[in-house]
Design a binder for these strands. Structure first.
Lengths: 180, 180
DNA sequence: CGACATTGTTGACCTCGACAACAAACCGCG
DNA sequence: CGCGGTTTGTTGTCGAGGTCAACAATGTCG
């Protein structure tokens, strides 16, 4: 088993005591050679992956989410947060368990997501009068406003997918997936 | 901001110094009432999520991966590992960078994945004679055997998707995604 | 040769899914 | 009423993965 060659013994502990993430050092934009011979040396064979739905679904999902995240980066709303806000907005008063179940998210995870949204002042958890265990979820005024913005950006994102996937394919895939 | 009600002050540090995960305490199987009124109190509204491709793609992806993982749990091969083995098997001698690029995985991540596959004796990294920086990736004999098994199981997994998604939808979606 | 790019590598951080263990509240039944 | 069982919200902990920064060794090209 080679592969134990390079790499310095201890790797000079990156001395980075402070300083924000710097957000994209603009590694692109200026390039002597526009990636010359790196076009595609041999064209790599995907093998049996070509017959696996999961592979393509995965790639598409990553692709779509990246675009979504980029477009909503202004208001700092992740796909998961967006889905949570949408469901709460469309179903006032439901419980965390119900919300988690419909979105396929663990209850434990949902607790922490809602905790964050609470702190940001977007959602509220009112103790249910009927059932002392439940918290009835609601959007705050700020939450509704934020959701409205998010929906607008999300709609933009969505319509941007159309040309890139081909309008016919887009509609086909969406309808097919919706039925599942 | 309520929600600061339940939960004990310090949460009795779970005293679990040892003992394996116990794998499914069989919480199901025996049930007095088969989830009686919990069928679906109101049927929750998905709101605008119904118009978002990303939502359905995400759900499908999770769904498919779970089945894949379950079926390959015997031989302990994740979807990512499977894709790595397949690509290496179909393209002997390619570099880690090329592999990472074609699969959309970070170089740094790929290093650790390959390190693990190496330790399991499935892959090898031979120093390239032409380029001292590169490692030419190959499957070991054991790796080929393992991949063969994995492919068989993966094929099973794949064909199990057909009836569940509907054969027509399956083919349609697969072809559509492949073109993207 | 010297500036620059590429490849493999490590370290650190963060998100997310999965479990386990609880406390509080609810439910049904003897 | 009280007791076992269940549900809801909660915290802690792991582990898989993605992301970013920094680096050593190597290759490339003017």
């Amino acid at each position: 088993m080679p592969a134990v060659k390079r790499a310095p013994k201890k790797a000079k502990v990156t001395g980075k005591p402070a300083g924000k993430p710097v957000k994209r050092p603009a590694t692109f934009a200026l390039r002597k050679r526009p990636l010359p011979t790196r076009i595609s040396p041999v064209a790599i064979d995907l093998g049996v992956l070509n017959d696996h739905l999961g592979y393509f679904v995965r790639r598409l999902q990553v692709w779509v989410f990246q675009d979504f995240i980029r477009r909503l980066s202004h208001i700092d709303i992740s796909p998961a947060q967006f889905s949570v806000l949408v469901i709460i907005g469309a179903n006032e008063g439901l419980s965390q368990s119900e919300l988690a179940a419909t979105l396929g998210i663990e209850r434990a995870r949902m607790v922490r997501m809602l905790h964050l949204l609470d702190r940001r002042g977007l959602t509220e958890r009112l103790p249910s009068s009927a059932d002392g265990r439940r918290h009835e979820l609601r959007l705050t005024r700020a939450g509704e406003a934020q959701l409205k913005q998010a929906k607008a950006l999300a709609a933009q994102h969505e319509s941007s997918l159309l040309p890139k996937l081909g309008p016919d394919r887009y509609r086909m895939v969406l309808e097919a997936l919706r039925e599942i």
